[in-house]
Design a protein around this nucleic acid. Structure first.
Lengths: 210, 210
DNA sequence: AAATGTGAAGTTGTTCACAGCT
DNA sequence: AGCTGTGAACAACTTCACATTT
């Protein structure tokens, strides 16, 4: 009930926006200023009509007979995705995967910054080479409040995931990137994106058998 | 043109099969032998009609008035997903993420086994604590042939991804789990699942602004 | 009585066809 | 002439309603 106006925009369209953004950045780096829906769509692996339809969910940005201004489109999409402004993120659960994500440089480049890493047993997490220290769970509410954190990455074991998610929500987080292989039950106003590596492999496996 | 019969089954339904499988395993561990579509669907976070429709793509497995046999369903889904038999996997690109995936134990449990890890510069990959040694790219075709590998996990930098993907296909791989943030162009008979962490965060970020 | 399986209806997302700018 | 923007047609997926089975 809070996601009015924007809820009408297909979630898949929002996903594709990220793909377009990446392609546009590549074009920009190559010194290209203007691009047609045909060309951009091909780069993004979609049909040109879909690209145009996706963009019109957000407004009119093209020039008929000419195409789209690369810089302007980048600006528009970045703004809509909220990657223009700095977005603080916490990561909970510093096992193998959590550590890898902490070390992953890709986030900063896109406007995200990890402002806190947490684990139930920070003493068991080798601190070597991590950009931020691993803190105990007790420190979580303080950091979330201090940085006004709205987004969290969840890498705890499945048995702990629901409980930790509940805590995150309670402290003010409204969006969770969940790597734990369970279905979280959370209020509707919270957005959850699930990434399940075993599931992706299983899915591929299905298609391997012709 | 090769995916006859099976192509008719919605890809999303295949994805959900993995979710159901996980829930069924949990039920089995709790000593539950029979489950209704209502209960299983709730556990999986879908509607019961959808669960039933998904299952009927593969046959009839329930008993009216009673429900589904947990063990039997597990067997059926595992077989369809191909996780009953051992599925060898190679992983290419042993950076932060690649290393994390190598150390991730979840794969083995699901019937997958990493039979080879490869990197353009194995000398730069600290070998400590990895279950398999990191080999140079030259060793790739030999391993793929030797183990009849059909699936690969791709964690190389975006600039190298397309080229490495082409090699993998050439050597006989038909399914790729791609972590590189680019759109791979590959023949239709190859299945690609993309996982893009920055994109998942961007997507969440969109929903953070109400 | 309880719960599955399924055609039909409904919903959502994609593509077409072309009108409308530049 | 070229390319965008968009209502209408289409396709894919989901949900409903209920007949069917145990």
């Amino acid at each position: 009930m809070k996601k009015e106006a924007r809820t009408e925009i297909p979630r898949k369209a929002v996903y594709r926006l990220s793909v377009y953004l990446r392609c546009l950045h590549r074009l920009e780096n190559n010194g290209i200023h203007t691009v047609s829906s045909e060309v951009l769509a091909k780069a993004a692996g979609v049909k040109s009509t879909q690209l145009r339809k996706d963009l019109t969910y957000f407004g009119q940005f093209g020039t008929r007979g000419l195409g789209y201004d690369v810089k302007q489109l980048i600006g528009m999409i970045s703004e809509r995705l909220g990657t223009n402004s700095f977005q603080p993120v916490v990561i909970v659960g510093i096992g193998n995967l959590g550590r890898a994500l902490l070390s992953y440089r890709g986030f900063e480049r896109e406007g995200f910054g990890i402002v806190g890493a947490f684990d139930a047993r920070p003493d068991l997490c080798p601190a070597g080479g991590l950009p931020v220290p691993v803190q105990p769970m007790e420190a979580l509410p303080g950091v979330i409040n201090g940085h006004v954190v709205k987004m969290a990455v969840l890498c705890v074991p499945p048995s702990a995931a629901q409980e930790v998610a509940n805590q995150l929500i309670e402290y003010g987080v409204v969006a969770i990137l969940n790597f734990a292989p369970i279905v979280l039950s959370l209020p509707d106003e919270v957005t959850v994106n699930n990434v399940n590596l075993a599931m992706e492999l299983e899915n591929l496996s299905y298609f391997v058998n012709e």
